[in-house]
């Protein structure tokens, strides 16, 4: 009897082991500092490479020189001269394009006649490289600010329209049903159910539209602009002044990061109701 007992204990011991964990990965977590680390690593690598000579100064300027150029730009007051013009163009153009885009997108989402009429038109306009239309805009709106606003507005308009009507289409139908079942007016349903419900889609569309706006800003400033980051980069490029070119590009990148962070902030504030 006792023999039997010890025997079972022995087999039990022989088979005891921890169940292997295999459920790891596939779970995105936020590590903010890694992005900065990668950036610093790349810049340090470029600095080391150009200093020690295994990157030719013809291919890449010294990051510290770029920083110096940037400092000079700031000290001369030209930075602000370029930035203020560019930011105004970006703001006016993107505001025009995005607000028109959201309005048209909502109309497409709500009315099937508008959808039938405008969706093919947007599909036709979307793939046109807007930069190709710049000469046309110059004729229509003049060589001054008008053509630049128009180019940026037009470029942000189409992606915003597409994102917005997609977002309106994706609003939970059962919530709209609920609104109707409580006799809410059409206006109330649009204002209190459709628009807030479409907000996540509209904001993620804006991320893309605003990046496109920055690209088009540079394109717009390539024609008939004295000041502006685009003009600055273009001038540096034609003189093969790599330090200034990179300083300008850095400004654009920073602009993009700021823009994306701003939208991220708005999303966190406005969409805290999401799961």
């Amino acid at each position: 009897m006792s023999d039997l007992k010890s025997n079972t204990v022995a087999t039990a011991q022989a088979q005891t082991r921890q169940v292997a964990f295999r459920g790891g990965g596939f779970a995105p977590a936020s590590h903010r500092w890694i992005g900065a680390l990668v950036f610093i690593l790349l810049v340090t690598l470029a600095e080391l490479g150009t200093r020690q000579g295994w990157i030719s100064p013809l291919t890449l300027p010294l990051p510290s020189d770029v920083l110096k150029t940037f400092g000079e730009l700031y000290a001369s007051g030209l930075l602000w001269a370029h930035m203020s013009v560019s930011l105004t163009r970006l703001f006016v153009g993107a505001l025009l394009g995005a607000s028109l885009g959201v309005a048209v997108g909502v109309l497409i989402g709500l009315f099937s006649y508008v959808r039938a009429g405008l969706v093919p038109l947007t599909a036709a306009l979307f793939p046109i490289p807007k930069i190709a239309l710049l000469p046309l805009f110059v004729i229509w709106f003049g060589i001054d600010e008008g053509s630049k606003y128009a180019l940026i507005a037009f470029g942000t308009f189409t992606p915003t329209v597409v994102a917005t009507y997609g977002a309106v289409d994706n609003v939970d139908r059962s919530l709209i049903r609920m609104g109707q079942s409580f006799n809410l007016s059409w206006m109330s349903i649009v204002r209190k159910i459709v628009l807030p419900g479409a907000m996540p889609g509209i904001l993620s569309g804006l991320r893309i539209s605003l990046a496109i706006a920055i690209i088009l800003l540079v394109a717009a400033e390539m024609l008939g602009a004295e000041y502006g980051i685009g003009a600055y980069i273009l001038e540096a490029g034609s003189l093969y002044d790599l330090e200034r070119l990179f300083a300008g590009v850095t400004i654009l990148s920073l602009l993009g990061v700021t823009m994306s962070a701003t939208i991220g902030f708005i999303e966190r504030r406005l969409l805290n109701w999401r799961q």
């Binding site: 059962s174 409580f182 006799n183 809410l184 109330s188 209190k192 109701w273 999401r274």
Partner: peptide, 21 residues
């Protein structure tokens, strides 16, 4: 069956929704 509550409104807001109109 699926409750049909507006996820962006609080409990109070969901009830006041049907009173506002």
């Amino acid at each position: 069956q699926d409750f049909a509550l507006l996820p962006w409104r609080s409990v109070r807001g969901n009830i006041s929704l049907v009173l506002e109109d």
